[in-house]
Amino acid sequence: MRSKFGFKMVLLNFIFLFAFSTTLFAQKIDLSSGAKVEFDAVGKPAMINIKGTGSKATGVLSFKDGSADGEFVVNLKDFTTDMDMRDEHMKEKYLEVHKSDFGKAILKISQKVEALFPQSGVWNPQNLKGSLTLHGVTKEIPLNSKINIKDGSAKGAVNFKIKLKDFNIEIPEFAGITVADEVTANVLIDSKVSP
């Protein structure tokens, strides 16, 4: 009798501890504390490397019970490519940032991930996907993520490729240079991790 009671107590304790431990590992990255967004595009035919910088990501990415949830919000108006005229064309003619809801890109992540977010170490999940809203179009895209967590901070990147046509963005053309359809975006994270 006593041993049965003891076994139940051990089992309950184990269940309690397991349940508690999963919530104990719940963590979130506050992107507002330091996340930049850049993009790389290629201009043809001269194979120009165009780098867009200057924009920040805001939002919170949470990890709990084996799920990753959250969203990045990027203000497209902040991007610059080191050339005024090209920036003007990019924002006004192609991204049309002046139109309602076109000024921001939003990347949502909400899925179970096999790789649990560690308290310390590298988070490099496979098959991570996100839902990107850009230029009024929402589309699911595969994401590559590698984030190093150490001493309460997260450093790394989430990157993904965008096909401009998928988002109804006209292929940019400027002064004889045509931008290739595929653009790579990088969210560079250097943010705090909090429980």
Partner: peptide, 9 residues
Amino acid sequence: RYGYPNCTA
């Protein structure tokens, strides 16, 4: 060094 490898740019 600014990403312009070809003269035709």
